[in-house]
Design a protein around this nucleic acid. Structure first.
Lengths: 147, 147
DNA sequence: TTTGACTTTTAGGTACCCTAACTATTAGGC
DNA sequence: GCCTAATAGTTAGGGTACCTAAAAGTCAAA
């Protein structure tokens, strides 16, 4: 009989979903005047250190390949990434960040982090600790939800 | 000198944003075959117990009134909500859930909660506690980010 | 060397959000 | 009792970011 713990887990699931739902809105509203949208920043951050192929980007973002292509083309037009055929596989395309792209990422991250950090100042030290302790758990959940 | 704690807060902000970013994708993929989209479920859940006016719904969802109107009209066409003029204020519109709407919410919540609960089973008891402790904190952050 | 599997792009849609402008109703000052 | 200002919602038009289906090019293996 695990019905009690099952139920507790379901309640937690409900709360988690609710927190996530609101988080979606918060995430979207962070720095809406900024030079990069949330989706663009996510993509650029991913290739910040090393270039990736379109398929890898799509996979890491959790979106389909055509959606990734679309974003990448927009970023290329804005001069923030380059697209070059993969020397080892001519079917594939290597996407790399440009200097302008890297600068945009850093500036956007700075602005958004400052906004969130300001929100965090409304928390007391215990809440800060609770949040910090849970972030790795959430990251684990996110990574365990593949497909 | 608060530069050290400022920096810690900024790091936490970065981690939090990252968790949220991944959470957005997870949230989007929950039960994509379901009868209700995530946005529809959020709206219907909100009026599950008692009807609300369009403006209240928009406010609670964190979206603008025209966006709420649009969703509500779609739900009305699907037979999941009703729209009736507020007897106390003829400008206002009361949105209430129908039986079909309530049934759809319960079924959708059940499916989604089950999916998340299954993910939660991959956590140990300490991680469960850490997550549970942080959810109210995240809710507080979400609600403190208005506009 | 042909066939089937991959990688990406193109084409056409959909969901969900926005601002600006409009209609209808209410409420307050005179 | 009016006129005006504020409020509630809808309509119109637009944008972002996702999707599926299908096409085009390349690879790899029988």
């Amino acid at each position: 009989m695990t019905s009690t713990s099952d139920n507790a887990l379901t309640n937690l699931a409900q709360e988690f979903r609710e927190a996530l739902r609101l988080g979606v809105y918060m995430f979207r509203r962070l720095d809406p005047e900024g030079e990069l949208t949330a989706a663009q920043l996510s993509l650029l951050s991913m290739i910040f250190d090393a270039g990736l192929r379109v398929g890898d980007i799509a996979k890491n973002l959790g979106i389909k390949v055509p959606s990734a292509t679309e974003q990448i083309i927009k970023l290329e037009r804005a001069g923030l990434v380059t697209r070059q055929p993969d020397p080892d596989d001519s079917r594939a395309v290597q996407v790399a960040i440009t200097k302008a792209g890297a600068a945009a990422v850093e500036s956007a991250n700075q602005r958004r982090n400052a906004m969130v950090a300001e929100l965090l100042q409304g928390l007391d030290s215990q809440e800060i600790e609770q949040l910090a302790a849970a972030l790795p758990v959430i990251a684990k959940l996110n990574s365990s939800f593949q497909n």
